[in-house]
Amino acid sequence: MMQEQGIEMFKDKRKSIMNWLMPKLLFLCALVSIGTTVGIVWTLFGETVAFFKQVTVFDFITGTQWTPLIDPRSYGVLPLLLGTFQVTLIACLFAFPIGIASAIYLSEYAPNRVRKVVKPILEVLAGIPTIVLGYFALFFVTPQLQKIFDTMGIFNALSAGICVGIMIIPMISSLSEDAMNAVPKKLREGAFALGATRFEVATQIVFPAALSGIIASFVLAFSRAIGETMIVTVSAGATPKIDINPLDSIQTMTAYIVQVITGDAAHGTIEYQTVYAVGMTLFIITFLLNIVALLIARRYREEY
């Protein structure tokens, strides 16, 4: 009997092989994400370097003409950057107030049954493919706006911006709502017990406590807007120019990349390399924004 017990305590080979092997396999899975990042950086880097052998970084960053596909060729990225930021800015002006107001309503005012219905609807909105929003921008928003602004072109920054805004509203509202929900209930109770109204609790207690999370949601949404491709490709136009009139056609970085790839630029040419240079620019900007958002969001977890 003693012996039997002793035997049971020896290691079961199969059991311990799995226990040894699985963590290593799983680790490989996790490494795929590192591989992806390395792949992105390495991929962009190679061709970008080739590009900058022909165009100086200075000309690229400060040039005000972007005409890589037609003579006289010029490689100043500013028009694309400005186009991108114009659309993004319009999107944010439209989406931030709506997103944050919806979040406050959902987290501080809405009865449960309203929340149960509204949140899935916002998720549907979040899941609308961007090509669909592009369609909506081109065939609905622009014609409607043209009734108001008669100088508005078929392709314009305004409609694209509004639809990019529609795209980021659910993101802002759900992330901000999460941040506000993370504020402990006892803080709200403390304020209510002093006779604060709901609005005062929301703006003086919950909003400040959730502020870093809310700002992080703004930054993430901003970054998402910058990287958005299909809406702007379909509805903002393909005319890279420095033009702050939102009724005019512009071109964003992403739309330019699509234009080159769907055209006939051959591999190895400088036209082709511009895709990588612009892609690198896009990647760096969004990457930095994401890091900023993560750092800001990390702060609010440490409080209370």
């Binding site: 006892k186 803080l187 109770e189 403390g190 304020a191 017990a193 002093l194």
Partner: peptide, 11 residues
């Protein structure tokens, strides 16, 4: 006025 079980100062 009300005082709660857990101290709940505002941040």
């Amino acid at each position: 006025g009300m005082v709660f079980q857990q101290p709940n100062p505002f941040p």
